[in-house]
Protein backbone atom coordinates (compact mmCIF):
# COMPACT_ATOMS: atom_id res chain seq x y z
CA UNK A 1 0.00 0.00 0.00
CA UNK A 2 0.98 3.64 -0.28
CA UNK A 3 1.35 5.86 2.78
CA UNK A 4 1.58 9.65 2.74
CA UNK A 5 2.50 11.65 5.78
CA UNK A 6 4.62 14.53 6.93
CA UNK A 7 7.97 13.94 8.54
CA UNK A 8 9.87 16.81 10.09
CA UNK A 9 7.76 19.25 8.13
CA UNK A 10 8.36 17.57 4.81
CA UNK A 11 5.70 15.57 2.95
CA UNK A 12 6.79 12.00 2.43
CA UNK A 13 5.41 9.12 0.46
CA UNK A 14 6.20 5.47 0.85
CA UNK A 15 5.16 2.91 -1.73
CA UNK A 16 4.79 -0.86 -1.63
CA UNK A 17 4.46 -0.79 2.12
CA UNK A 18 3.59 -4.18 3.56
CA UNK A 19 0.48 -3.77 5.71
CA UNK A 20 2.21 -5.19 8.78
CA UNK A 21 5.04 -2.69 8.68
CA UNK A 22 5.40 -0.23 11.50
CA UNK A 23 5.94 3.49 11.22
CA UNK A 24 9.42 2.77 12.56
CA UNK A 25 10.24 0.45 9.67
CA UNK A 26 8.96 2.95 7.12
CA UNK A 27 11.00 5.77 8.64
CA UNK A 28 14.15 3.69 8.87
CA UNK A 29 14.06 1.52 5.79
CA UNK A 30 11.96 3.45 3.30
CA UNK A 31 12.49 7.11 4.08
CA UNK A 32 16.17 7.01 4.97
CA UNK A 33 15.58 8.27 8.50
CA UNK A 34 17.27 5.66 10.69
CA UNK A 35 17.67 8.00 13.65
CA UNK A 36 14.70 6.44 15.45
CA UNK A 37 16.04 3.19 16.82
CA UNK A 38 14.87 -0.42 16.69
CA UNK A 39 15.92 -1.67 20.12
CA UNK A 40 12.91 -3.73 21.18
CA UNK A 41 10.01 -3.30 18.73
CA UNK A 42 7.60 -3.98 21.55
CA UNK A 43 7.10 -0.57 23.14
CA UNK A 44 9.28 -1.35 26.13
CA UNK A 45 12.39 0.73 25.49
CA UNK A 46 11.38 4.06 23.95
CA UNK A 47 14.33 4.12 21.54
CA UNK A 48 11.96 4.71 18.64
CA UNK A 49 10.09 7.58 20.30
CA UNK A 50 8.78 10.11 17.78
CA UNK A 51 6.17 12.82 18.00
CA UNK A 52 2.95 11.80 16.25
CA UNK A 53 0.75 14.84 15.86
CA UNK A 54 2.72 16.28 18.77
CA UNK A 55 2.50 13.33 21.16
CA UNK A 56 5.49 11.16 22.00
CA UNK A 57 4.76 7.61 20.89
CA UNK A 58 6.68 4.46 20.10
CA UNK A 59 6.99 4.40 16.32
CA UNK A 60 7.35 0.61 16.46
CA UNK A 61 3.74 0.31 17.64
CA UNK A 62 2.17 2.59 15.06
CA UNK A 63 1.08 0.65 12.01
CA UNK A 64 2.47 2.37 8.95
CA UNK A 65 -1.02 2.87 7.56
CA UNK A 66 -2.05 4.68 10.73
CA UNK A 67 0.44 7.43 9.97
CA UNK A 68 -1.46 8.37 6.82
CA UNK A 69 -1.98 12.11 6.72
CA UNK A 70 -0.32 12.73 10.05
CA UNK A 71 2.66 14.72 11.22
CA UNK A 72 5.73 13.03 12.59
CA UNK A 73 8.78 14.59 14.19
CA UNK A 74 11.86 12.41 14.58
CA UNK A 75 15.23 13.03 16.14
CA UNK A 76 16.45 14.16 12.73
CA UNK A 77 13.97 17.04 12.86
CA UNK A 78 14.35 17.85 16.53
CA UNK A 79 16.70 20.80 16.09
CA UNK A 80 14.41 22.41 13.55
CA UNK A 81 11.40 21.68 15.73
CA UNK A 82 13.10 23.39 18.66
CA UNK A 83 14.11 26.36 16.53
CA UNK A 84 10.56 26.88 15.35
CA UNK A 85 9.27 26.58 18.86
CA UNK A 86 11.80 29.11 20.10
CA UNK A 87 10.79 31.44 17.29
CA UNK A 88 7.20 31.13 18.42
CA UNK A 89 6.26 29.48 15.17
CA UNK A 90 3.69 26.94 16.16
CA UNK A 91 2.94 25.93 12.63
CA UNK A 92 4.34 22.84 11.12
CA UNK A 93 4.79 24.11 7.64
CA UNK A 94 7.32 22.57 5.36
CA UNK A 95 10.82 22.83 6.61
CA UNK A 96 14.04 21.48 5.25
CA UNK A 97 14.55 19.25 8.26
CA UNK A 98 15.79 15.72 8.60
CA UNK A 99 18.82 14.12 7.10
CA UNK A 100 18.47 11.97 4.08
CA UNK A 101 20.92 9.20 3.47
CA UNK A 102 22.35 11.12 0.57
CA UNK A 103 22.80 14.15 2.74
CA UNK A 104 24.44 12.08 5.39
CA UNK A 105 26.81 10.66 2.84
CA UNK A 106 27.67 14.04 1.43
CA UNK A 107 28.64 15.28 4.83
CA UNK A 108 32.35 15.77 5.29
CA UNK A 109 34.25 16.19 8.51
CA UNK A 110 34.73 19.69 9.77
CA UNK A 111 36.06 21.01 13.05
CA UNK A 112 33.36 21.03 15.66
CA UNK A 113 31.49 18.24 13.97
CA UNK A 114 28.51 18.40 11.67
CA UNK A 115 25.83 20.88 12.46
CA UNK A 116 27.64 21.92 15.62
CA UNK A 117 25.76 25.19 15.57
CA UNK A 118 22.46 23.56 14.80
CA UNK A 119 21.73 21.39 17.79
CA UNK A 120 18.60 21.92 19.84
CA UNK A 121 19.18 22.85 23.49
CA UNK A 122 18.39 19.36 24.68
CA UNK A 123 20.70 17.79 22.10
CA UNK A 124 23.50 20.11 23.12
CA UNK A 125 22.89 19.35 26.77
CA UNK A 126 23.14 15.60 26.15
CA UNK A 127 26.54 16.12 24.51
CA UNK A 128 27.75 18.46 27.23
CA UNK A 129 26.57 16.40 30.19
CA UNK A 130 28.08 13.13 28.98
CA UNK A 131 24.61 11.62 28.61
CA UNK A 132 25.63 9.75 25.48
CA UNK A 133 27.58 6.52 25.57
CA UNK A 134 26.59 3.94 22.99
CA UNK A 135 23.87 6.37 21.98
CA UNK A 136 21.27 3.83 20.92
CA UNK A 137 18.71 5.11 23.44
CA UNK A 138 19.64 8.73 22.78
CA UNK A 139 17.29 9.61 19.91
CA UNK A 140 14.22 8.41 21.79
CA UNK A 141 15.33 10.07 25.00
CA UNK A 142 15.91 13.34 23.19
CA UNK A 143 12.44 13.36 21.70
CA UNK A 144 10.89 12.52 25.08
CA UNK A 145 13.03 15.02 26.99
CA UNK A 146 12.37 17.80 24.50
CA UNK A 147 8.65 17.23 24.81
CA UNK A 148 8.91 17.27 28.59
CA UNK A 149 10.65 20.63 28.65
CA UNK A 150 8.18 21.99 26.10
CA UNK A 151 5.33 20.98 28.41
CA UNK A 152 7.03 21.62 31.74
CA UNK A 153 9.88 24.14 31.53
CA UNK A 154 10.93 23.60 35.14
CA UNK A 155 10.58 19.89 35.79
CA UNK A 156 11.46 18.45 39.17
CA UNK A 157 13.72 15.42 39.29
CA UNK A 158 10.69 13.22 39.89
CA UNK A 159 8.98 14.79 36.86
CA UNK A 160 12.01 14.06 34.71
CA UNK A 161 12.18 10.49 35.93
CA UNK A 162 8.50 9.96 35.25
CA UNK A 163 8.65 11.51 31.80
CA UNK A 164 11.64 9.37 30.85
CA UNK A 165 10.46 6.18 32.53
CA UNK A 166 9.57 4.70 29.15
CA UNK A 167 13.08 5.11 27.77
CA UNK A 168 15.56 2.42 28.71
CA UNK A 169 19.26 3.17 28.78
CA UNK A 170 21.73 0.37 29.41
CA UNK A 171 24.99 2.35 29.50
CA UNK A 172 24.73 5.43 31.67
CA UNK A 173 22.76 4.47 34.76
CA UNK A 174 20.66 7.53 33.84
CA UNK A 175 22.52 9.97 36.09
CA UNK A 176 24.07 11.95 33.25
CA UNK A 177 20.76 11.87 31.38
CA UNK A 178 19.10 13.55 34.34
CA UNK A 179 21.98 16.03 34.38
CA UNK A 180 21.41 16.75 30.71
CA UNK A 181 17.69 17.39 31.09
CA UNK A 182 18.29 19.66 34.08
CA UNK A 183 20.94 21.47 32.08
CA UNK A 184 18.68 21.91 29.07
CA UNK A 185 15.85 23.19 31.25
CA UNK A 186 18.15 25.57 33.09
CA UNK A 187 19.58 26.94 29.87
CA UNK A 188 16.10 27.37 28.44
CA UNK A 189 15.16 29.22 31.61
CA UNK A 190 18.13 31.54 31.29
CA UNK A 191 17.47 32.13 27.62
CA UNK A 192 13.80 32.78 28.27
Amino acid sequence: MRVNFTVNGRPQQADDVWEGESLLYVLRERLGLPGSKNACEQGECGSCTVRLDGLPVCACLVAAGQAEGREVVTVEGLAEHARRRAAGDGTTARAPAGTSLDEARRWTPAPGGPGAQALSPVQQAFVDAGAVQCGFCTPGLLVAADELIERNPEPSDADIREALSGNLCRCTGYETILDAVRLAAARAGEAG
Binding site: G43, L55, V57, C58, L61, S165, G166
Partner: peptide, 8 residues
Protein backbone atom coordinates in the same frame (compact mmCIF):
# COMPACT_ATOMS: atom_id res chain seq x y z
CA UNK B 1 3.32 1.08 30.39
CA UNK B 2 5.19 4.27 29.73
CA UNK B 3 4.21 7.82 28.78
CA UNK B 4 4.55 6.81 25.14
CA UNK B 5 2.21 3.86 25.63
CA UNK B 6 -0.27 5.98 27.58
CA UNK B 7 -0.46 8.35 24.62
CA UNK B 8 -1.69 5.52 22.41
Amino acid sequence: GSPQIRNR
